[in-house]
Amino acid sequence: MLSDHVLFIDGEAIVVDKPAGLPVDRPRDGSLSVENHLAGLTFGFKRWPTPVHRLDRDTSGCLLLARNPKAHARFQQAFEQGLVEKTYRAVLAGEPEGDEGTIDLPLAKVSSPRAGWRMVGDAGGKPAVTRWRVLARSGGRALVEFRPETGRTHQIRVHAAEGLGAPIAGDPVYGGGQGPMLLHALKLVLPRDGKPAVEAQAPLPASFAKAGFDG
């Protein structure tokens, strides 16, 4: 139950620690999604909360939900204006050169009947910028902190694979896909006028420790 994964709650916002494997939107196959848990996240309100942004199915961590339509509109605007501070942790299947930097790689969507769709680096695509720094290295892998300054689909996954030359461990599209995908939305901070910021941090899942990285 997502009600057991609440990291932050007030009259406008709820932040939950979304488990890996749970999609935000209802899949075509009808399997469970965040939508199936919304009724259990009312906490005394009649209205169900609604997700403000998206995390990939295999990404765990901080997911923001709004508790009313006005808050949803304001929160979405904050995301669109780049005002939301997002911090991710990922284990890369390889070690990047250097210890920190900024990836400025525009992204575009491509698709084919056989392989489906994916995002690729493309100079003619939409701007995408991610700051990164290595936190630890072990066994040919690296624990990396990512701070995306834009919010493109699959941005961190493509920036790791193409920008750093080391895909996220377990990534089924841009990497080898062996084991769970080790990408976690660690922290979210959304400023609000006249109120304290919405701020939450989700603990690293056990899959990171199993991979040899616990912080």
Rank of each mutant, 00 (worst) to 15 (best):
L105R: 00
P19V: 10
F43R: 12
Y174C: 02
T102P: 03
L182I: 09
A185G: 05
L55S: 12
F213D: 06
L83M: 06
V144Y: 02
R114Q: 10
P27C: 13
V120Q: 00
W132I: 05
A123I: 05
G175N: 05
G165D: 00
P106D: 07
F43N: 00
R54L: 13
R67T: 10
A73N: 09
Q76W: 01
Y88N: 03
L2F: 07
D99V: 14
G116N: 08
V198Y: 15
H53N: 03
H53A: 12
L183C: 04
A123Y: 01
T87I: 15
K18N: 01
P51G: 06
Q81E: 13
M1A: 14
K210E: 14
V84Q: 08
L32Y: 07
I168P: 08
D193C: 02
P51Q: 04
G212F: 13
P148I: 07
A142H: 05
E12N: 05
G21P: 13
A169R: 02
L164E: 06
M119L: 12
H159P: 02
C62N: 00
A211D: 09
R67M: 09
H159Q: 08
G179W: 10
P96S: 00
D214P: 00
S111C: 02
A108H: 11
A71S: 07
A160H: 09
G101S: 07
K18Q: 01
K86F: 03
R47L: 15
T153Q: 06
R74Q: 11
G212D: 13
R54Q: 14
E162T: 01
L135F: 03
G124V: 09
I156S: 04
R26S: 05
A73G: 09
G61Q: 01
D17V: 06
Q155R: 15
P172A: 12
L38V: 01
T130Q: 07
A71L: 01
G139E: 12
L204C: 07
R74P: 02
D99H: 05
K46E: 14
F208I: 00
T153P: 09
L2C: 08
R118Q: 00
L22R: 08
A185I: 09
L55Y: 06
